[in-house]
Design a protein around this nucleic acid. Structure first.
Lengths: 193, 193
DNA sequence: GTCTATAAGAAGATAGAC
DNA sequence: GTCTATCTTCTTATAGAC
């Protein structure tokens, strides 16, 4: 693996776990296995390194949602349920990219806030559109309520995912997975025709 | 106001907005209007100051939930809806205590993680019990589904609140409030008898 | 590209005068 | 209790040899 890739990989994990201020160039260098000044041969400064990670995380997150929604199922209900479960499994899997995304969408470092939120906003919108398309299919098929707007139901879906994401830090994986089942039951009752 | 109170007040806001690492003793001192070393006459160190704020925030959060649930209404549905709306309004109100609570429950500084989560876990459980009691009342009255467990429905409620909390950073207050209405509609459809 | 050495500044915290 | 002065450590970042 090229050094630059390794820097991106290790710093993703550190940023996700320790935050922006909590991650020093020294820690990154140590994990990569080089000395601190060598980092500056690959990135102009800490900010440039961080935004390189942001770029990659956005792409990964969108690809993940797309894949989760493209799984083969008989009904739209199953498709949504499977996607929901995949999301939850991913939370539990302690995936650095998802954690990175969730951490900085909520708590961007003050000096990078404007640039970060502009990016995340667009990314969230793209992802919501993907889900709304599946929900609309369910409405066309007649399995999902037609009085509610598809994008409203998509919003609620991501709202629950984000709520469960919050819980991951507090509760055990098993608890979150059990809670996710309950949450899904309530959600499906809420949107079904 | 006593200096110690002012320190607690100003540092709550700074911690909530900038995080633990992002908040320096120098910044706190400046906002309070004293010099940095004077802080150490009131608190042994930064950690002690932080945990003093944690204590107060927990109490405030639990009192807030209790009050939101004790509002006078005709039906349990209205009572839950009103509490939900109060919660959302509070998110939008940019309240430092709620933001503090939500920030550190999700992203505790690594070196304080164990002590913080132990506290928050107990606090969350107490709050969930308060809501479950109201939901059980709804079940007894017949307005809320009896096949689902009250505490599961309480869990989903807080999951949605936490999801909406996440959105506050990204979207405008108006958008979040509009989303909250939609989310409530789906939730109520999900739990009603 | 990677290293050693080092600068320049900010962080948490303490000593001791008033 | 608050201050000035100071210490130590850690931070981001650069200079320049190899």
């Amino acid at each position: 693996m090229h050094t630059k890739e390794k820097i991106r990989l290790e710093s993703t994990e550190l940023f996700a776990n320790l935050g922006y201020e909590g991650t020093s160039m020294a820690k990154i260098a140590e994990k990569v296995g080089i000395k601190k000044p060598s980092l500056y041969a690959h990135y102009k400064n800490k900010e440039a390194l961080f935004f390189d990670v942001v770029d990659e995380m956005e792409q990964e997150y969108e690809a993940f949602v797309q894949d989760s929604l493209n799984q083969e199922t008989d009904t739209i209900e199953e498709r949504l349920y499977l996607s929901f479960k995949t999301h939850v499994s991913d939370l539990a899997r302690d995936d650095a990219s998802i954690q990175f995304y969730n951490r900085f969408i909520q708590y961007p470092p003050k000096e990078l806030e404007d640039r970060l939120l502009a990016r995340f906003n667009k990314s969230e919108e793209r992802v919501r559109v993907l889900l709304a398309a599946v929900i609309e299919k369910g409405q066309a098929e007649g399995s999902i309520n037609r009085e509610l707007e598809a994008k409203s139901m998509a919003y609620t879906y991501f709202c629950l995912i984000e709520g469960l994401t919050t819980e991951v830090g507090i509760h055990s994986i098993e608890e979150v997975k059990a809670h996710a089942e309950v949450v899904w039951t309530v959600y499906w009752r809420g949107i079904q025709a």
